[in-house]
Amino acid sequence: MSEQITLTVNGIQVSVPRGTTVAVAVLLAGAICRHSVTDEPRAPLCGMGVCYECRVKIDDVSHCRGCQTLCEHGMNVRTDD
C-alpha cells in the first residue's frame, strides 16, 4: 500500500496515494478544474502540462497546472477562485 497524502480541494479533504497529481485529486473530489471565459466547465485535456485546462489555485497561487503538480500533505487546492 503506498503512502496516502491528504490535501483539501475546495475545502473538502481528499486522500490520494503519493505520486498522484493535483489534477487527478480535483477529479477525485468530484470537482472540475475551471470555468472558461464563457463559463463552460473544463477539465484536463492533454495531461502533460501543455493545454492549461487544469489550472487551479494551489496554496493561494492562481493558475497552477494541476497535471504537473504532485499532491503534497496539507496542500490547499481551490478551483474557480
Binding site: 490520494v16 496515494p17 505520486g19 498522484t20 497529481t21 489534477a23 487527478v24 485529486a25 477529479l27 477525485l28 472540475i32 472558461s36 463552460e40 466547465p41 473544463r42 477539465a43 484536463p44 485535456l45 492533454c46 495531461g47 502533460m48 493545454c51 497535471c67
Partner: peptide, 18 residues
C-alpha cells in the same frame, strides 16, 4: 470541450498520475 473528453495520451497520463 466537455469535461472527460481528453487526449488519448492525455487520459493515459492522468491514469498514470492516479
Amino acid at each position: 470541450t466537455l469535461p472527460n473528453v481528453m487526449g488519448a495520451g492525455g487520459l493515459q497520463a492522468l491514469v498514470k498520475s492516479g
